[in-house]
Design a protein around this nucleic acid. Structure first.
Length: 281
DNA sequence: CCGGAGGCCTGATGGC
DNA sequence: TGCCATCAGGCCTCCG
């Protein structure tokens, strides 16, 4: 589920909710694979640690815990949820960290694809990642240089976290539409004008996604929900970027720019949405 | 180097 | 209503 804007929203929300400074007083692993298969090892590494801060690198949530680092990746259906002491669990809590203020930090994840890692060497996970798209140092020249290293489809390149970090299926389709670039184009075929425009479009869709507190699709329980938003107690209005999507999951609807029906194709086994007129191959 | 298939998992959705 | 197939915001491994 979550891409950069959703992960950024989670990080900001948990930070505002006072997670930094809390000590992990107890750890319960309900699904071993969530923590890499060895629940006991995870408990030994995490229990008693103080969460010093919470940040983000690509789609990874990064929490230094006094020596080692606690990393979380939400994959398709994961959430980090700060639960009040009197609030009952849902049954989808794959790992729960009990905090010293009585609250519980749930790694909630129906599909069980997400991962929680405690490691002394976070760089082994974070170093292979490409640059942050919203970092000022990630210029359009940097993007162009990285995209031109391969002939793969530009969509495939943008989904590759070692090329650029944080983009997923939604924001890639939206950025390519905004830039007017066909997702099947080889990375090597993009000229300077196109990479400059794509760079601006990536920044635009991500910044808008963050401003809108992320994207939530569908109506079911598996949507992206802000931590603390469950039960509507936090006063949080929740993700609303879905209203800003121009092409993603809008197959057959008129292109907002030219009215041509939006088309759905498959690239690298991923559903891809585009306007055949505004994004000519 | 690259693409495709399959795997990991469960729930929502749509057609019949 | 029930059943079944399909799809899903991610990413890894294997195979050709």
């Amino acid at each position: 589920m979550p891409e950069l804007p959703e992960v950024e929203t989670v990080v900001r929300d948990l930070s505002a909710a006072g997670l930094p400074g809390r000590r992990i007083v107890n750890v319960h692993v309900a699904w071993q694979r969530t923590v890499g298969g060895d629940g006991a090892a995870f408990v030994r590494m995490a229990a008693g640690r103080i969460i010093e801060s919470i940040g983000r690198r690509g789609k990874w949530i990064v929490m230094p815990v006094g020596g080692p680092t606690l990393l979380a990746h939400l994959r398709m259906s994961g959430r980090l949820y700060l639960r009040a002491p009197d609030e009952s669990p849902t049954g989808y809590e794959r790992t729960t960290l009990a905090l010293d203020d009585g609250r519980l930090l749930d790694f909630y994840d129906p599909r069980k694809f997400g991962r929680l890692v405690v490691t002394e060497r976070p760089e082994s996970i974070l170093e292979p990642l490409g640059p942050e798209p919203l970092d000022e140092r990630t210029t359009h020249e940097v993007l162009a240089q990285r995209l031109r290293r391969s002939r793969r489809a530009v969509k495939t390149q943008l989904l590759d976290q070692t090329v650029i970090a944080g983009l997923g299926n939604i924001y890639v389709d939206e950025a390519l539409f905004d830039a007017g670039i066909n997702p099947t184009r080889p990375g090597t075929s993009l000229d300077d004008r196109e990479t400059e425009r794509l760079h601006a479009s990536i920044r635009l869709v991500l910044e808008r996604g963050i401003a809108n507190l992320g994207t939530s699709l569908g109506t079911g329980k598996s949507n992206f929900v802000l931590p603390g938003a469950r039960g509507a107690a936090g006063g949080s209005t929740g993700a609303r970027n879905q209203e800003s999507l121009q092409v993603f999951r809008r197959t057959g609807e008129p292109c907002p720019r030219c009215g041509t029906p939006i088309v759905r194709i498959i690239i690298g086994q991923r559903a891809t949405h585009l306007c055949p007129l505004c994004q000519p191959g």
